[in-house]
Amino acid sequence: MEFFLQLLIQGLSVGFLYALAALGFVMIFKSSSVLNFAHGELLAIGAFIFLVFSVRLNLPIPIAFLFTLAGTFAMGFVIERLFLRPLIGEALIEVIMLTVGLAAMFKGLLLVIFGGNLFNYPDFLPKALTIEWGAITIPPVYVASFIIGIIFLSIFGFFFKYSSQGIYMRSVADNQPAALSLGVHVRRVFAMSWAIAALVCALSGIILGIMNGINVHDISIMGLKVFPVVILGGLESIGGAIIGGLIIGLLETFTGGYLSTSLKEVIPYVVLVFILLVKPYGLFGLVEIERV
């Protein structure tokens, strides 16, 4: 029972992280229908920028954190401007391949700069965040990630629902030509969504780094785990991303705990194929109906 609870909590926190990582992915997909294969690398870039600010430059943690967010926000703009903007209106395959290329590029670049070693952040989370509940202890990382996640999810929820920029983004996602004809600056929306997505990625990258340490390979594999999550939840749905993340996290942890650790890595993809066959648009995705 104790083992079960420990797994449950671990699974939920891993799942929460997946949800957070998937959030940036869904943002990009919602506003520009780009399937971003460079997602894991964006996570890694965020984590490494924070590493540079906090460890190498020795800035205080809050300032390093803010700098990281600002830096990745700007980086998102640059990526969109340099690589994605020339492809607006091009065939889907080219955009997908471009993100595959970007993924290889970023990964190579990170490996050249930082190497494939495991890095760690200094232990800066206060011990007071530890929750002890009977025999179960929840480490502060999980608590902190949960709090940060809740804060950011609600900020983005409000952003999409009420701010004009968020409404523009939703309109572009819904119908690009209609949004254009109503005077929405579609290109700015694309740039904005990449910037926000890079920021969200940095956030989840940092939390991931606190939990498991930062390693280019591990984090970029994480970016591919996002696919089962978003497919399960539905590509367009933020709520779906959260629920999908939790389900996949739990599934993975329980498989690792009860069945076998090697199966743990592959089970999300097995589930993915199964979902794609049974319910391709996920739990909360938009069902496209096509008839001939």
Binding site: V100, A103, K107, G108, L111
Partner: peptide, 13 residues
């Protein structure tokens, strides 16, 4: 060695 991946990505892009 990792530059290989970078060059690949760059070529695709």
């Amino acid at each position: 060695a990792p530059l290989r991946e970078f060059v690949f990505g760059l070529a695709i892009v």
